[in-house]
């Protein structure tokens, strides 16, 4: 069989999601954001919600998410995305409303907005990219930076006496009565990506069913700020991030 015989429309098994725009993404090579963008784009399309989605982008590396996924977007001030989403969902209850935020945005400057939006049981989904570092500003310490991990603002490693402990905000979210689904996923392997996609789909479905707030944490890499190749970053994440941020569902309130 020749390659020409295989490359025919009827044999197509995988292509870039239709909702992912053709414009190249500004993310660094191997960045987890790209994988998660693809999953979000696929899930919106599979739910048939393209015309009913209002997405909220953060301040951080994903600030330009609105350039890449072909739906309506609001770009929020740093950390405030859950406040925007709360209002939008209450004003447009039949719309799919989700935020897409990094660790600095969600777990540091926006901790208040995150906790209270979840605690009110807003019918929104929050996609939380946790790569334990501030990517866009050049690799500074994040609330989720691991102890001992070196960043631009803890160049000798995060020291608990100087910097305090890494924040497990996903565990906190699971304790709140307003959350219906809280899970921690990753996108470093095919199997993990398929699970992460199911998690995003569940969070979006729950929000449309009015069950409350969902938080999908994606433990991610930042190969540039971690100063590793994408491959090595994935291994480093498995060895160092997963023990502290274990994958799996923390809460799933069945109806």
């Amino acid at each position: 069989m020749t390659t020409e015989e295989i490359i025919r429309p009827e044999n197509l098994v995988y292509r870039k999601p239709e909702l992912l725009n053709d414009v190249p993404m500004h993310y660094c090579p191997g960045c987890s954001h790209g994988m998660v963008h693809k999953l979000v784009a696929e899930v919106i399309a599979e739910m048939g919600m393209t015309e009913k989605t209002i997405a909220i982008s953060p301040v951080g590396c994903a600030v330009f998410a609105y350039k890449y996924i072909d739906v309506d977007w609001q770009e929020a001030a740093h950390g405030r995305a859950p406040a925007l989403a709360s209002a939008v969902k209450r004003l447009w209850p039949d719309r799919l409303v989700f935020t897409y935020q990094g660790d600095g945005d969600l777990a540091c400057i926006g901790t208040g907005e995150t906790i209270h939006a979840i605690n009110r049981g807003e019918n929104i989904a929050i996609i939380f990219i946790n790569n334990a570092i501030y990517g866009m500003t050049g690799g500074q310490m994040a609330p989720t930076t691991l102890l001992g991990m070196k960043t631009a603002t803890c160049p000798y490693g995060r020291d608990v006496h100087l910097h305090g402990y890494p924040l497990k905000i996903t565990e906190i979210a699971a304790l709140l009565d307003g959350s219906c689904y809280v899970t921690r996923q990753a996108v470093h392997t095919v199997a993990a990506i398929l699970k992460a996609k199911k998690a995003i789909r569940k969070a979006f479905d729950y929000s449309m069913q009015g069950r409350g707030a969902s938080l999908v944490e994606i433990v991610s890499t930042c190969s540039t700020s971690w100063k590793m190749t994408p491959e090595k970053a994935n291994r480093w994440m498995e060895e160092n991030m997963f023990p502290f941020y274990p994958l799996g569902d923390l809460k799933d309130s069945k109806p």
Binding site: I56, Q74, A76, A77, R80, A83, L84, A85, S86, A87, V88, G112, E113, H116
Partner: peptide
């Protein structure tokens, strides 16, 4: 802070 950002949304 949240109020005004809800208004923004």
């Amino acid at each position: 802070t949240a109020s005004i950002n809800m208004v923004y949304g």
